[in-house]
Every structure is written in structure tokens, then in C-alpha cells.
Amino acid sequence: METNQFVPDIIAFCCHYCAYAAADLAGSMRLAYPAAVKVVEIPCSGKLDPLYVLRAFEDGADGVMVAG
């Protein structure tokens, strides 16, 4: 793998009840996912505010994923 390859920083907003639980399970199962994906637990994907997305981009994220 080329060392200078662009690796986007992704903020993943995950619903507590499904996607976050799935990510947790993935961890328990020792399944790897890219280190550039940072998971942020939210109570529900309906709690996601456009402001969170803007703040993620403003603070340097290259992409935002919403999972729920």
C-alpha cells in the first residue's frame, strides 16, 4: 500500500441502539475497521443535528457517516 495515499478521516455518528451496538459487537469479535473512522455514539440517529455535521467538518473531518 502506498504510504502517501489519502486516507479520509471519517466521523461516524452511530445510534446507541443499533449501529453503535453493532460496532461494539464488531469490537468484541475482534473485527477490524479503519482507524480513520471515529465513532461518536448518539442516543438515536434522529438526534443528529446539522450542527454536529458542520462541527465535524469544521474540526477537520473529511467525511461524516450517519448509521442508525
Partner: peptide, 13 residues
């Protein structure tokens, strides 16, 4: 408040 924060963030970026 929400729109003010969104507008401020949008302007900054």
C-alpha cells in the same frame, strides 16, 4: 440559537 450556530459555522468554513 440552532440557526445562529449553523450560520456561524457555515460562515467560518
Amino acid at each position: 440559537s440552532r440557526e445562529a450556530q449553523i450560520t456561524a459555522a457555515s460562515l467560518r468554513m
